[in-house]
């Protein structure tokens, strides 16, 4: 069994049915999780911020840090393992986008991440089939490539499936 662990701004794909793709401790960050049930192929990206324009150097070093520089690369990587280039046939799930208590509009980066991601997906005619977003909790997420099962863990709150 091989595990792919993604840090902030990383993305990864796999069609190894024994593999799991995982990322830890999403706060305001958002994980976009892709699964193609026909091909048993999965992908994930850990997005920290909506737009690369705030730090183009960072975007160059780690494009997955930003929604606009990262998402196209995730879909490209999925295409390289046999999925449709435009994302047809993919089940999309969104996890994360939390905030601190009493946050104001400026600090609600989780919400801004989600809006940016959804806009980019809509532009491709895509949308999420499930989401576990918002609130004030930290989430660790994993997808099992063989089954497509998405599991979420939060400290002191346990584990559940999405």
């Amino acid at each position: 069994m091989s595990d792919i662990v993604l840090g902030i701004g990383d993305f990864g794909v796999s069609n190894d049915p024994n593999a799991t793709i995982k990322t830890f401790a999403l706060g305001s960050c958002v994980a976009v999780v892709l699964f193609n049930p026909a091909l048993h192929a999965a992908g994930m990206i850990h997005i920290a911020l909506p737009e690369m324009k705030v730090n183009p150097t960072r975007a160059k070093e780690r494009p997955g840090f930003f929604a606009d520089s990262g998402l196209p690369l995730l879909f490209g990587a999925m295409a390289r393992i046999g999925c449709d280039k435009k994302g047809k046939g993919l089940k999309i799930k969104l996890i994360g986008g939390a905030s601190i208590m009493d946050n104001n509009e400026i600090f609600n980066i989780g919400k801004r991440n989600l809006i940016a991601i959804k806009k980019l997906l809509w532009a491709q005619g895509l949308g999420a089939v499930a989401e576990e977003v918002g609130g004030t909790i930290s989430r660790t997420v994993s997808i099992h490539v063989g089954t497509g099962e998405v599991r979420i863990f939060s400290p002191a709150r346990g584990t559940w499936t999405l």
Binding site: I8, F24, A25, L26, G27, S28, C29, A48, A98, S99, I100, M101, D102, N103, N104, F107, I109, G110, T136, I137, S138, P155, A156
Partner: peptide
């Protein structure tokens, strides 16, 4: 730090922002 996923476990995000 908490928003960016660098928290210390169960207290992640369980505090108030003072506007």
């Amino acid at each position: 730090a908490m928003m960016s996923g660098h928290a210390t476990g169960s207290d992640a995000l369980q505090y108030h922002l003072d506007g």
